[in-house]
Amino acid sequence: MLKQLLFTLVAAFLFFVPKTYAHTYLDSTNPTDGATITEEIQKIDLNYSGKIEEGSIFKVLASDGAEMAMESFIINDSVLTGTLASPLPNDTYKVEWDSISEDGHPLSGSFSFTINAVASDTNNETVPGADTSKQIASDVTKIVDTLKTETDSEDGNSIWSLIIVITIILLIITVVTIYSYKRTYVKRKKNK
């Protein structure tokens, strides 16, 4: 009676153990399924529960069905990394993957994500002298950082020299900016 009960329990256990535990499965992805990414990406990672074999690949499809060009695939034990030929532009993408587990079992599936990267400043109107002002502001920042470093290591009297230098630099920026705007205003007035 005890042998029959033990045999029945073992048989029931083997019957109810899911077959998926015997095979490799997709554990996680980067980007994750359903994610919205706010920066450009050029690599996609698929992480499996076990080792996968050569020949495992995936394709990336844009919302209009266009297949994005892949540059390479790298398999490192249980991670499949695909590098795209160029960063993905803003759109919704579907990744369709086909992989081969270590035991030869074929795996397939899909997931999707959205790219919504912040666009760079697209203001086409440029003000003459703006680049000069930006360059001067960049130079001022460098000078101030250098002076701060030197001031931190010297007496408190050198703080006045820092204030004087910053004041002079701000005056130069103001003069250059006013001159640039006046020059632009005169040119526009002549063109009318």
Rank of each mutant, 00 (worst) to 15 (best):
I100Q: 02
T174N: 12
T141K: 08
G82K: 12
I37T: 06
D45W: 01
F7K: 08
A62V: 08
L88Q: 08
L170M: 12
F16G: 04
S180T: 11
T24E: 06
F113S: 08
T92P: 04
S49F: 07
G104E: 02
N123H: 10
L147A: 04
G109R: 06
V165Y: 10
I159S: 07
I100C: 01
E53R: 02
A137C: 12
S72V: 03
Y25T: 11
N76Q: 11
S120G: 15
K187T: 07
Y181N: 03
K59I: 14
S120F: 09
V95P: 03
A12E: 03
G129K: 10
T20E: 08
L162Y: 10
R183S: 15
T24L: 02
N123Q: 13
P31W: 02
I136V: 11
V127Q: 07
D103H: 04
G104S: 06
D77F: 03
A130T: 11
N90Q: 01
L9H: 02
K182E: 11
F15K: 02
S120N: 15
E54V: 06
N124L: 14
L80S: 07
K51D: 03
N123G: 12
D155A: 06
A12P: 00
L14K: 05
E102Q: 09
S63E: 07
A130M: 14
V118A: 11
A66W: 01
T32M: 11
L162P: 00
G109V: 14
Y48R: 04
Q135C: 02
G156Y: 13
I178K: 09
Y93N: 05
F111I: 01
T146E: 05
D33A: 14
A69L: 05
Y185L: 12
I44N: 07
A117H: 00
